[in-house]
Amino acid sequence: MESSRFLDCLEADFARLRAVVPGDLSAAVPSCPGWTVADLTRHVGRVYLHKTLAMREGAEPDVWPPKELADEEPLALLDKAYAGLRQEFAARRPEDPAGTWYTPDQTVGFWIRRMAQETVIHRIDAELGTGQPVAPIPDDLAVDGIDELLKVFVAFGVAEWGDYFTDILDGSPGRTYVVRTDGAAWRVRTGPGLFAVEDGAGDDAADVTVSGPPAAVLRRLWNRESAGEPSEVTVEGAPEAVEELQRCLVTATQ
């Protein structure tokens, strides 16, 4: 996806998030245990401010969040932070340098993509928390979100911060997973200290196959499905293998 497309998606999902959250700031967010909608709103605002500083200062702030942000009213913080983020994006080119936690990509473009994906997931959280219908997710954004989750979060996380995954992967017998959706597929190999992702389903049988429409697969992998509603995602494989993948996803995104 082009950066301009990510920015369009960011704008649309922020507008939906901003429309939903005032409905019930005290409501619990089921996909973020322990959070209310107010907590979620404040979190998104803090994230936007953090990434704005990462671009402005060339490195992510070490101490975060500042104490003064704790007293900010959630909606005011969200609005101010989003305006600052968009101003920072407008003042820079996607290829300009920026401090990021993802070593292979130290550019503004990384944060454009990341904030688009961050926002679509958290607007789903807001919808689930306020009891609103979950708005559609464009196929291209959902496919990119699956790709980012598998490669940028999990594969890079295992390679860079392997200790966090030791309890999950050290006892792995070595498994293969295929994640498949409309127009895209990924093949994952796991083992002790290993989470490798390749594009395409490959020809060999997999221990686990996850398949469904793009938005449904994205929500399943991010654990953002609606409780009580039938899933559009099909998961085939042994429960212990499915659990290994799910634990890797949860650990990488905490």
Rank of each mutant, 00 (worst) to 15 (best):
A116R: 02
A116Q: 03
E118P: 07
T119H: 12
R123M: 14
I124H: 12
D125E: 10
D125N: 14
E127D: 06
G131H: 11
Q132R: 15
P133R: 09
P136V: 15
P136I: 14
P138D: 15
P138K: 05
I146K: 05
E148C: 11
L149M: 07
L149S: 09
L150Q: 01
V152Y: 01
V152Q: 13
V152E: 08
F156N: 13
F156L: 07
G157F: 02
V158N: 10
W161G: 07
W161Y: 15
D163T: 08
D163P: 05
D163K: 09
D167K: 07
D167H: 14
D167W: 05
I168Q: 09
L169V: 12
L169C: 03
L169N: 02
D170K: 01
D170G: 00
G171I: 08
S172N: 04
P173C: 05
P173I: 12
G174H: 10
R175C: 11
Y177F: 15
V178H: 11
V179T: 00
R180E: 14
R180T: 08
T181N: 05
T181V: 09
A185W: 03
W186L: 12
R187L: 10
R187N: 04
V188W: 00
V188P: 06
V188C: 00
R189E: 11
R189Y: 00
T190L: 01
G193K: 01
G193N: 10
L194V: 15
L194W: 04
F195N: 05
A196Y: 00
A196E: 12
A196T: 13
E198V: 07
D199P: 00
G200F: 04
G200K: 03
D203F: 12
D204Q: 15
A205R: 09
A206E: 04
A206F: 09
A206D: 06
D207V: 03
V208F: 06
V208Q: 04
V208S: 02
V210F: 07
V210Q: 01
S211D: 12
P214M: 04
A215G: 14
A216R: 01
A216F: 07
A216S: 04
R219M: 10
R220W: 08
R220H: 02
R220C: 00
N223M: 07
N223Y: 12
E225I: 07
A227V: 09
A227R: 13
E229P: 01
P230C: 00
P230N: 11
